[in-house]
Design a protein around this nucleic acid. Structure first.
Lengths: 276, 276
DNA sequence: TTGACAAATGACTAATTAGTCATTAGTATA
DNA sequence: TATACTAATGACTAATTAGTCATTTGTCAA
């Protein structure tokens, strides 16, 4: 057990410096002053090691932040969230480097899955924070706000993680709190809509079912006013039930609805469905 | 020459899918349907290939955006900047993926240097944009604004690069313009100060020397066919040896060559050199 | 047809990789 | 001391890597 921790500690240093792929088991065993066999007594593979590392740190970090979001008054919430997040990055800077690098780069299936899992927890936390603080004022832009908070946090964190600049945690926190409040109070143009979030969820990505499109069509038909677009959509719906028109005609109808701001998503799904 | 482009094209696809490190020369040669020897006739090493790819695309993208920043009225500036940037990412999405991944991860010394070089050009562009648009109002927060613009741009670009969501370039641009204006007009707490920026500079940046430009001119003159561009270039070369024309005339000549696809980079260097 | 030259090949080397396993060292109990 | 057990070793395999080079193929002028 102690050996396992020793390996994790030493491997962390090497991964942070060189990256996961670029670090060999050989290097890890040398750095830990153990034999190759000893390594494989603790971990079944190199992959198992990095998965263990991610779990080890992310369980800690996630639950810390989750606790803060759930047990802080609204007044302090944003401040404490940023402070805790930045502090986690600083205190586990080697880990944070690995996590950020692998997030951008990894090709390992399981690794990506794990990173996505913890990322989704993080996003859920921020979303609940945003809804609590700004509530009904930002129904349209809530996902954008979440995305900006996450983006700015990571981008500023990279500043002290990858360029060893001195970090004034207090000041950086204040500056991020201000930016978040400013954005929350003033932005009005949403880019990340409900539809978009739905599609980014892992399950949805693989297959577009007739039913999904059908349901979305019904929703949109209710939203739309009488127009060419609505007529086109109605025709497309009929085609979905009972195809009678030729492919070019269907393609044309899909084109018709594409420029309507509410139907972008639908037209995307239809193009996928019909393989245009 | 054509072979070189074939290899670059095929390698780009593989790098975008699997990452640079994870792609073997073997795979590249198989994908390009050439032999291993043929690969090494075009490129001295795998490293030289990715450096060539980065130059190829970044010269194009950087000079496009530079040109827009320098030739757009203030009214349109922000909008055109975001639009052009996002369009570049979309049109060269395989390259953008590689550039983003390697930016986060790479351990190759020369590769990092090159990426930093183009990043610093990008930052300079954004800084000049910020100063022009908001000027004295944001002396304290200008670097933060630059950093936020860069961060938000990349973060949102990742959205359509790595999750294949459909991209409404127009809407995303508008949404980013709004966010930028909101931040510029309301943030007051600076985190990235002048000193910090100084500190992040890796020693002294390479100067653009007369010789570099001169050599590049000679190369291009050989490539070009008889045309207004070639005449302009010849005149510019003479000006470099012995200046006789006035600044506006020189600026006009630089303008003349900018639209020629092979001279984008040269025109960028000349604009830097003459401080237009 | 021949000769000369450039383009292209792929078998090859030497190095490195993740992971295995027969062997040994260390330790605790009888 | 003898026995039984676990902990640890590092030489080993098989696969893969970047890069090389003797050889073949293609092309075009004489």
């Amino acid at each position: 057990m102690i050996k396992k921790e020793l390996i994790m500690e030493k491997a962390l240093e090497l991964f942070a410096k060189q990256g996961f792929e670029a670090t060999s088991v050989q290097q890890i065993t040398e750095h830990s002053r153990i034999s190759k066999g000893a390594f494989y007594l603790s971990f079944k593979s190199k992959d198992e090691l990095i998965l263990a590392l991610i779990d080890h740190f992310m369980i800690q970090i996630s639950s810390d932040i989750d606790h803060i979001v759930k047990h802080t008054t609204d007044h302090d919430l944003l401040y404490k969230f940023f402070y805790a997040s930045l502090k986690s990055y600083r205190d586990h800077s080697d880990f944070a480097k690995i996590f950020m690098k692998e997030q951008a780069q990894s090709c390992n299936e399981e690794l990506i899955k794990k990173i996505h899992y913890y990322e989704s927890i993080n996003e859920k936390n921020i979303l609940s924070l945003v809804d609590r603080l700004y509530g009904d004022d930002i129904v349209q832009t809530r996902y954008d706000l979440v995305y900006c908070i996450n983006g700015l946090l990571k981008h500023y964190a990279a500043l002290f993680l990858f360029y060893n600049i001195p970090l004034d945690l207090y000041l950086l926190t204040q500056s991020l709190v201000e930016k978040t409040n400013v954005l929350a109070n003033h932005i009005s143009i949403p880019f990340i809509t409900n539809d978009l979030v739905e599609m980014m969820k892992p399950g949805t990505k693989e297959e577009i079912t007739k039913e999904q499109i059908f349901n979305l069509m019904d929703n949109k038909l209710e939203e739309l006013e009488e127009s060419i677009e609505k007529e086109s959509l109605t025709l497309l719906k009929q085609q979905l039930i009972e195809p009678t028109l030729s492919r070019p005609l269907i393609k044309g109808l899909v084109e018709n609805i594409h420029y309507h701001p509410h139907c972008k998503w639908l037209s995307y799904l239809l193009r996928q469905y019909y393989q245009f």
